[in-house]
């Protein structure tokens, strides 16, 4: 069991609890976090799950992977160095307390 905090661009916070083994897009969708659609179901193929990893956590989650994740992020908006596709962040106990910020809008 671990906790993840999602923070909307306007500052609204959502603290959710999940078992390990899911990815951060699935958990967001399951908990109705606004702004994470996950249209492709987690295949890194739609970029509707773009998030910013809190700088304090980026070492643990790692940066966007080479290949499809980086390619898809290239087409997202307002991409930063700590941008990730939430569906590519696999949650395990080492990520208990993870903070993910949401971009203003995505498509």
């Amino acid at each position: 069991m671990l906790h993840i905090k999602y923070v909307e661009a306007n500052g609204t916070e959502y603290l959710v609890e999940t078992d390990a083994g899911f990815n951060a897009m699935e958990v967001a969708v399951k908990n109705g976090i606004p702004g994470i659609d996950g249209d492709c179901g987690g295949a890194a193929a739609c970029a509707t799950c773009h998030v910013y990893v809190d700088p304090g956590w980026i070492e643990k989650t790692g940066k966007a992977a080479e290949g499809l994740e980086q390619s898809m992020l290239e087409f997202a908006e307002d991409v930063q160095d700590n941008s990730r596709l939430a569906c590519q962040i696999k949650l395990d106990d080492a990520l208990d307390g993870l903070v993910l910020k949401l971009p203003e809008k995505q498509h």
Binding site: D39, C40, A45, C46, A47, T48, L68, M72, F75
Partner: peptide, 14 residues
């Protein structure tokens, strides 16, 4: 929105 009409991947409909 889980449908294929716009494709997926790098050519997904802009």
């Amino acid at each position: 929105r889980q449908h294929l009409s716009f494709g997926f991947g790098i050519h997904r409909c802009v």
